[in-house]
Design a protein around this nucleic acid. Structure first.
Length: 432
RNA sequence: GGAGAGGUGGCAGAGUGGUCGAAUGCGCCAGACUCGAAAUCUGGUUUAGUCUCAAUGGCUAACGUGGGUUCGAAUCCCACCCUCUCCGCCA
């Protein structure tokens, strides 16, 4: 949610910057609504003030045993039904405020000035490239062939159990998946200063609204009915973790809060039919290790660079080639002010594919969820929120399988993971 | 699932129809005292919104949430949500 004060003051500038991300802000509608709000709010509060004055004088007169007949006429004038007028005015104001809030919730974040202007992923700007894609002296297979050859990935059985876009892992590949998550958590907690958290995987609507999934993107979520309300399966740990600070004033000396969290993520993938249907690139359920920072606004861009570096560190330790790009204005998510995508090299696709997305939301999420700190004058101020994948575990597994494959169809275990694999150095098919 | 207790400011905790945005204590901030600190004393200290001629200004709202009664609700009534304790069941 944008700051309504900014909209009032710099409506034209905001409209112009939102246009870069192909969002047409209806400035006229906003101004009309704002004018209406002002008129109705002033009138309503005036009526409320009269009502308060009336009650006060009434009580005062009563206590002194004076008559109370003349009071209403003196305050309200003759011939009006103050209750009905007030009630109607309050209803009207409520309606306007609801419309205003709906309007504000539907406006995406304003891109930071450093974000390149562009229309699509083609306009993203590469900031660095690390490692060189390995040349294989045999035709590189993709993770599906590798995993099925090792009897460790089974998409048919997953489809039987659940449907399309699910994976069943077995044996050393299942263990490799687990090892990756452990390795990531350990690295971020022991080397990057994050606190590990475990959270609910089902959350309420307030939490989804706080991080921006609701109200606009309900179709991307899985939901379950619970009692009379809906609960949502988290599409990323960003949701429960960032909502830790919803309605909280964080002591300034505790900033930045740095959390790391490993969860499954559930996404309906509505609207992505036919895209990435092969393998485990795009799943309804996948594991991710998420980094979240709650940070002082002054340091949030510094923090974003650091957080992106923390995610990249995992790829470096795994010796996987990657590149990092800055998303252009047209390719960014709804809530982000700036996003870096980290893309890992996948020999099976002969392409770099997204494995992490690191964003600064500035105050966009924090305003929605009233997450604040106190400035040196003691006034509550909105914090900034950051998050990034550190990393998507399923896609990292894909990258390891494809980059560490051998001519015989087996897969070398990256050095840093061997301890997590009980010393195993090579993944081979089961003996029997 | 059954029985009970409770949800009030950063925290603890009073307040059961009026001048209560809310006692008191703790915490925090400023000042006094002090060489300095502690102790003590004095003052301040919820949040959100809004108006205007922008001030040491006015007004509105908020005591879990939503409704109701009333001139007037933290306080009374109804519904719901949440937390805690005990019993049962259960990974």
């Amino acid at each position: 949610m944008l700051d309504i004060q900014t909209l009032r003051k710099d409506l034209d500038a905001v409209t112009a910057r939102l246009a870069h991300r192909s969002f047409a802000l209806d400035a006229a509608a906003f101004q009309a609504l704002e004018a209406e709000r002002k008129a109705v709010q002033t009138r309503t509060e005036d009526l409320q003030a009269k009502k308060n004055r009336y009650a006060k004088e009434f009580g005062f007169a009563k206590s002194k045993g004076e008559p109370t007949d003349g009071i209403a006429g003196r305050i309200y004038g003759e011939g009006v039904n103050p209750d009905a007028v007030l009630k109607q005015s309050e209803e009207e104001l409520k309606g306007i405020q609801a419309r205003m809030s709906e309007f504000l919730l539907s406006v995406p974040n304003v891109p930071h000035e450093s974000v390149p202007v562009g229309k699509s992923a083609d306009d993203n700007v590469e900031v660095r490239k690390v490692g060189t894609p390995k040349k294989f002296d045999f035709p590189a297979r993709d993770h599906v062939d590798i995993g099925e050859g090792l009897k460790g990935l089974d998409f048919d059985t997953a489809a039987k159990i659940a449907g399309a876009r699910f994976t069943l892992m077995k044996g050393p590949i299942a263990r490799l998946h687990r090892a990756l998550a452990q390795f990531m958590l350990d690295t971020h907690t022991t080397e990057h200063g994050y606190t590990e958290v475990y959270t609910p995987y089902l959350v309420n609507a307030d939490s989804m609204r706080g991080t921006g999934q609701l109200p606009k993107f309900e179709q991307d979520l899985f939901a379950v009915q619970h009692n009379d309300s809906k609960m949502y399966l988290i599409p990323t740990a960003e949701v429960p973790v960032t909502n830790i600070v919803r309605d909280v004033i964080v002591p300034i000396e505790e900033l930045p809060l740095k959390f790391v969290c490993h969860t499954p993520c559930f996404r309906s993938e509505a609207g992505s039919y036919g895209r990435d249907t092969r393998g485990m690139i795009r799943q309804h359920q996948f594991d991710k290790v998420e980094l979240v920072q709650i940070i002082h606004p002054e340091y949030s861009y510094e923090g974003l660079d650091q957080l992106t570096g923390h995610a990249e560190a995992i790829l470096k330790k795994l010796e996987l080639p990657f590149r990092t790009v800055t998303l252009c204005t047209g390719d960014m998510g709804f809530s982000a002010a700036k996003t870096y995508d980290i893309e890992v090299w996948l020999p099976g696709q002969n392409a770099y594919r997204e494995i992490s997305s690191c964003s600064n939301f500035e105050g966009f999420q924090a305003r929605r969820m009233q997450a604040r700190y106190r400035d040196d004058k003691g006034k509550p101020q909105t914090v900034h929120t950051l998050n990034g994948s550190g990393l998507a575990v399923g896609r990292t597994l894909v990258a390891v399988l494809e980059n560490y494959q051998r001519a015989d169809g087996n897969v070398d275990v990256p050095t840093v993971l061997q301890a997590y694999m009980g010393g195993l150095k090579v993944i081979e098919p089961p003996k029997i």
